[in-house]
């Protein structure tokens, strides 16, 4: 510890000088030269450059991919991790109520076919998923409505309705901690490319694309906000700014609004394509639903 000793000597010299101790005090008296600022600089640089990554964050980092959790403040992370503090769990509980609620002409509930909701464990990791019968990919939301219409003969829930949010959150929460692993072959390839084109397309009065924030400046500030890498593993997410839970499509809409661009309808093919591209881009990150973000 040559440096700290040197610093101590220098400090002692300072204190003695202040108290006008007789006789000259030489910092190097102890035989260790006090470091010059030039010597100290590399040490400080190394400390600043060293990534301040907590071991608790390790599950949220996969290679260069960092979940939004990593960029969140410790207080926000603590909120997400505690089931009572995390307001998103209120939607999980509502979803539980809806799971066994009989609706529609067939007199069925979700539980009639699927049994307990725990049977959904691990299902959400492969969504959005190609559905050959519909000749299109389906999101968890769309699959829920497909079940409601086809199996239950009930009315589909509107996108962003409290019921659809609650059910989506409940189902995705069953896969909490499991890595996103959507299929990227066959017809899904085309949708990934379509989403990619949207991701890199400049839009709106600010003439920005998603890339200009989330690929170029993650971790940096946009006014008071910290930009993230735009991963989708935490959706539906409880946003403190919304004081409520919202879907990924609502978040995409918000981003488009912030770019002063025209938005697409929630659940539209454009948002589905972006969702597919972003899911592919964040492959391997654990599902965090319901996450808490600023």
């Amino acid at each position: 510890m040559p440096m700290s000793r040197g610093v101590l000597c220098a400090l002692a010299g300072f204190v003695l000088a202040v108290f006008s101790c007789p006789g000259p005090v030489v910092a190097g008296e102890s035989g260790v030269a006090s470091p010059s600022p030039v010597d100290a600089a590399p040490h400080i640089d190394a400390a600043l450059a060293a990534p301040r990554i907590d071991a608790a964050l390790a599950p949220y980092i996969v290679g260069a991919k960092r979940s939004g959790y990593v960029y969140a403040l410790p207080e926000t992370r603590a909120m997400q991790d505690d089931e009572i503090m995390n307001p998103g769990f209120a939607w999980v509980e509502r979803g539980r109520g809806l799971w066994t609620e009989v609706e529609g002409a067939n007199g069925k509930s979700c539980a009639s076919c699927h049994g307990p909701v725990e049977s959904m464990a691990g299902k959400a990791v492969s969504y959005p998923k190609w559905k050959a019968s519909m000749n299109r990919p389906v999101t968890v939301e769309r699959q829920i409505n497909f079940c409601r219409v086809a199996a239950m003969k009930a009315e589909p829930w509107e996108h962003e309705s409290p019921q659809l949010l609650a059910m989506t959150t409940l189902i995705k929460q069953q896969s909490r901690g499991l890595p996103m692993s959507m299929a990227d072959d066959g017809p899904m390839r085309e949708w990934i490319d379509r989403g990619k084109a949207l991701y890199f397309a400049r839009r709106g009065q600010l003439d920005m694309s998603c890339k200009h924030c989330h690929d170029d400046h993650p971790g940096e500030k946009l006014r008071a906000e910290t930009l993230s890498q735009a991963h989708v593993n935490g959706f539906p997410t409880y946003r403190l700014g919304w004081q409520g839970l919202g879907s990924l499509h609502r978040r995409l809409e918000t981003c488009y609004e912030q770019m002063r661009a025209e938005t697409y309808p929630l659940g539209s093919d454009e948002y589905v394509a972006l969702e597919i591209f972003l899911t592919d881009r964040g492959r391997g990150l654990p599902i965090e639903t319901p996450s808490v973000r600023r």
Binding site: I84, A90, E93, R94, G97
Partner: peptide, 11 residues
Amino acid sequence: MADENKPRVRV
């Protein structure tokens, strides 16, 4: 959605 405002408590 009967349990809309059901408080969650941990003791």
